[in-house]
Design a protein around this nucleic acid. Structure first.
Length: 422
RNA sequence: GCGGGUGUAGCUCAGUUGGUUAGAGCGCCAGUUUGUGGUACUGGAUGUCGCCGGUUCAAAUCCGGUCACUCGCCCCA
């Protein structure tokens, strides 16, 4: 164990990385807000059962990917591997079943004990939306549209393809699952090793197996659409119809199966091929049965989650914020007054960085490199006249400005240059 | 959890069949410019060669182990 190294699968977000993350979150938050979703947060850990029950004990996420531990009182706790179960628990805990529908947006860290890869970390971050209450297919469409809008504003929608499927209601899903098991069991020994395991743990997963042998066997397998009830079909048709009217493009993908047990009806993923093995950028679906597995009342809901790291990897650069103004005391006697000036500029709402290190040239270079638009030079000479020098870094022009007019002068100057760059 | 690749300066990398003081570019620092950045020129510093062990007169180079990163599988955001 090397203490000078971050824990495997975790990473520091240095200012540049953090700026990208912040950008993703603020865009998502803004889009969600415009659609009526309210920002909220749940704790990062919960009683272990909050995740183990709804996600399904056999799901990989719970079986081998959770960070679970006992606290000092011996209580079994788990760092959240995803946000939906916690959100649902929060609805029930807070007695909000009388205040439906709820539209929630969240962003925060999630934890899964996985082998790290590009776009796949042990501590990663997700944004997500949950629409809790409605059974209407409009809710499904709305959730998908919010996801699409976020990707669109981040300019990564064109790099993705929306895959859509219906898993049917619980009854259709279970019937289909059994039919699939019956069919595949005949070929058990011909299936790939992975798929033989999945036959017991998560048979629907076999559908998107990458093994050619498996795919050959699957050509004759029962198809999910033919097991959908009429209601489930009608629901799905209505969702597709809404998406069509909203000009949200999608492809029907009968092989799309989401890993977590609680999904029913609509399942969708925005998939990219720009992230290696990690195709899914944003995924979700309907989870009508989740509340009941937690011991709550029937509480239909739809939602999605998206990985911030993945979105940040695909999106544009966003450099960390830099103060507009650099402030330099030209000599030691001028420092106290220069310092006071910096504070008052900030109080006036301007962003101002005081250059501290080295001689004049060093300070100028630092201000230049950081990207300050203007540099205020306060030397004893000017200060005696009640003035400072202001240098515009882009063109090298320098003026002497009275201190009493400095705030106004800088504000005007900065708004001019920011208009030019727009 | 399984399989492949990589690990040399802050960063990107070179380092010939093992051979003495381990290099380049970028960046950094200093100077030309003692109150002025960006360009240019000149000079300078920097390394547990990932870590541990083995082979050898001699290891950055070969072997074993280990850790980390990376790609794929699994799974997912």
């Amino acid at each position: 164990m090397d203490l000078l190294q971050p824990v495997r699968g975790t990473a520091d977000l240095l200012p540049e990385d953090k700026a990208r993350h912040n950008y993703v979150v603020s865009v998502a938050q803004d889009v969600a807000r415009r659609s009526g979703f309210q920002d909220m947060a749940t704790p990062v850990f919960e009683f272990t059962q909050v995740f183990s029950r709804p996600l399904g004990a056999s799901s990989d996420v719970v079986a081998k990917e959770t960070y679970s531990f006992e606290d000092r009182g011996g209580t079994g706790l788990t760092l959240r591997p995803e946000g939906t179960a916690s959100a649902m628990r929060a609805v029930i805990s807070n007695g909000l079943t009388q205040s439906l529908p709820l539209r929630w947006f969240y962003a925060g860290p999630m934890f899964r004990y996985e082998r790290p890869q590009k776009g796949r970390m042990r501590q990663f971050h997700q944004i997500g939306c949950e629409l809790i209450g409605p059974t209407s297919p409009l809710a499904d469409a709305e959730i998908i549209s919010v996801g699409a809008a976020i990707l669109s504003e981040l300019k990564i929608l064109p790099h993705t393809k929306l895959h859509l499927n219906s898993l049917g209601d619980q009854k259709s899903r279970l019937a289909y699952r059994q039919a699939l098991i019956d069919y595949l069991t005949q070929y058990r020994s011909s299936l790939s090793e992975d798929s033989q395991r999945r036959l017991d743990s998560n048979p629907l997963r076999i559908l998107d197996s990458k093994s050619e042998a498996d795919q050959a066997i699957l050509t004759e397998a029962p198809r999910l659409p033919s097991y959908l009830s009429n209601e489930a079909k009608a629901h799905f048709d209505q969702v597709s119809g809404c998406l069509n009217k909203a000009a949200i493009e999608f492809v029907l993908d009968p092989l799309l199966v989401r890993g977590l047990d609680y999904y029913s009806h609509t399942a969708f993923e925005f998939i990219t091929n720009a992230l290696g093995a990690q195709g899914t950028v944003l995924g979700g679906g309907r989870y009508d049965g989740l509340s009941e597995t937690l011991g709550g009342p029937p509480l239909p809901a739809v939602g999605f989650a998206a990985g911030i790291e993945r979105l940040a990897l695909l999106g544009d650069d966003h450099s960390a914020a830099v103060p507009d103004i650099g402030l330099i005391a030209a000599d030691i006697d001028a420092e106290p007054e220069a310092f006071g000036l910096a504070v008052s500029l900030r109080q006036a709402g301007l962003s101002c960085l005081m250059l501290i290190n080295g001689n004049m040239a060093k300070k100028m270079r630092a201000a230049s490199r950081l990207g300050c638009a203007s540099v205020v030079i306060a030397g004893s000479d000017e200060l005696r006249r009640g003035a400072v020098s202001v240098r515009s870094m882009a063109d090298g022009e320098q003026f002497e400005v009275e201190i009493s007019k400095l705030t106004t002068w800088l504000s005007e100057r900065l708004s001019e240059t920011s208009q030019e760059s727009d």
